[in-house]
């Protein structure tokens, strides 16, 4: 996989042209940084959902659970 492909995968879309033509090392590093941020974001959200469901008063826990988990 080329560095550009790695970045496209990390972004979920093709990067802008001026970015796509940057050196491979830059693209790879950026892709890794985005993947790391995504992993952290997902973990934060998961933790937030758990905190919210466990923490809200029992009376509203049902609707909060439904809102958060669908």
């Amino acid at each position: 996989m080329t560095a550009k492909d790695e970045l496209t995968k990390a972004l979920g879309a093709a990067p802008p042209e001026a970015v796509a033509t940057l050196p491979a090392a830059t693209l790879t590093r950026l892709a890794e940084q985005i993947d790391a941020a995504k992993a952290r974001q997902d973990a934060d959200l998961e933790k937030s959902v758990k905190v919210a469901i466990d923490g809200v008063p029992f009376a509203v826990r049902g609707i909060v659970r439904k809102a958060l988990l669908g």
């Binding site: 802008p16 042209e17 001026a18 995504k38 974001q41």
Partner: peptide, 29 residues
Amino acid sequence: TGLDGVPDADLRTLHDQISKRLFGDAQRQ
């Protein structure tokens, strides 16, 4: 690093792409 020569318009696009990637999955939530 390495993005210094990229035009602002492309950096904005990149920012929005990253933002969508980070938060897009949980939009419905």
